[in-house]
């Protein structure tokens, strides 16, 4: 970029080649991701449109699109929420143990084992869920139906196979545990020594030090990790398709054989044998999942930013 013209131009700030290449490729990558995202959204909307406009009777189930998708959304959220409720406290506890309590050697070993959980393919989780977890849960379901059936969650009848919403949620919980605990571990270990020492010098016990200097610092990281986990739980397909015995319908009953399916699992199971409007309907449910995931992420950002003033960043 050399100009040969005579009139003296103000000298332009010199930009080095490496700098320009990097700036260009970074901008390109940023634009590319937006284009891909817009493309996916446009595809989903255009393919879903026929299902949105079709007469109610033509949609599978015969009661219209909303009636078809609602139970799926419900099932998706329910499974993910169970997973999150089970996995988050456990992950935080594991992360705290590894970073502040475990002897060094053990901590490193435990870290590897947890990370290994993330490397297991979801088919394997599915087999584990149906072959090991589900049967193991059956006695609990029977017991819960007998003693806890006054709680709607345990209304029963207890599943004999164990392929229930609770089993699916627990399995998802194990699957997202490594994500949440890895991120929590990372942020906990970065809690500044400056503030940890401030707490200890005030006469804090180790647990008090964690409450004063580690948890507040790591909170937004934990929320971020939980949201990543939630994202995975919402989108999990194969393991749910294998484990969950789905028959549709909205119910909070977690221990029976009739459960709502989840969006992703439903698409995976139905797609191969669908044609025409059925495909459009499935894509419409996919669009719903897209929107939910987006909403969850925005909510997470809002939560993380709400007390930005008091975050460790300033």
């Amino acid at each position: 970029m050399t100009t040969t013209s005579a009139p003296p131009e103000p000298p332009r700030p010199k930009r080095r080649v490496g700098d320009r290449i990097f700036a260009g490729s970074a901008t390109g990558a940023g634009i590319l991701i937006l284009v891909v995202l817009a493309g996916v959204a446009a595809f989903l909307v255009s393919e879903a449109w026929p299902a949105v406009t079709a007469p109610a009777g033509d949609i599978p189930g015969g009661d219209g699109l909303t009636a078809y998708i609602a139970p799926l959304i419900f099932g998706t959220l329910l499974a993910a929420v169970i997973a999150l409720v089970v996995a988050t406290p456990l992950a935080v506890a594991i992360a705290l143990y590894i970073t502040y309590y475990a002897p060094r050697r053990l901590a490193a070993g435990m870290g590897y084992v947890i990370d290994l959980l993330a490397a297991i393919p979801s088919v394997v989780y599915g087999f584990w869920g149906i072959a090991a977890l589900a049967p193991a849960m059956v006695p609990f379901y029977v017991w819960a139906e007998e003693h806890l059936s006054f709680i709607p969650l345990f209304a029963g009848p207890a599943s004999a196979t164990g392929r229930t919403m609770l089993t699916a949620g627990l399995m998802l919980g194990v699957m997202i545990l490594p994500i949440i605990s890895a991120i929590s571990r990372e942020v906990f270990s970065q809690a500044p020594a400056l503030h940890r020492e401030a707490a200890l010098a005030l006469g804090a016990t180790r647990w008090e030090m964690i409450k004063m200097a580690v948890l507040p610092y790591g909170k937004s990281g934990v929320i971020g990790g939980a949201m990543l986990g939630l994202g995975r739980a919402l989108g999990e397909t194969l393991a749910i398709a294998i484990v969950l015995s789905a028959s549709g319908g909205i119910t909070f009953n977690l221990i029976s054989n009739s459960n709502p399916s989840t969006i992703a699992a439903n698409i995976a199971l139905k797609f191969p044998e669908s044609t025409g409007l059925d495909v459009n309907t499935l894509i419409a449910s996919g669009l719903a999942l897209f929107v939910i995931t987006l909403a969850v992420n925005m909510l997470a950002r809002w939560v993380v930013n709400r007390r930005a003033d008091f975050s460790g960043a300033n």
Binding site: P192, L194, A198, P216, N314
Partner: peptide, 8 residues
């Protein structure tokens, strides 16, 4: 280094 708890 001054070290007030930033989250408080």
């Amino acid at each position: 280094r001054p070290n007030p708890f930033p989250t408080m």
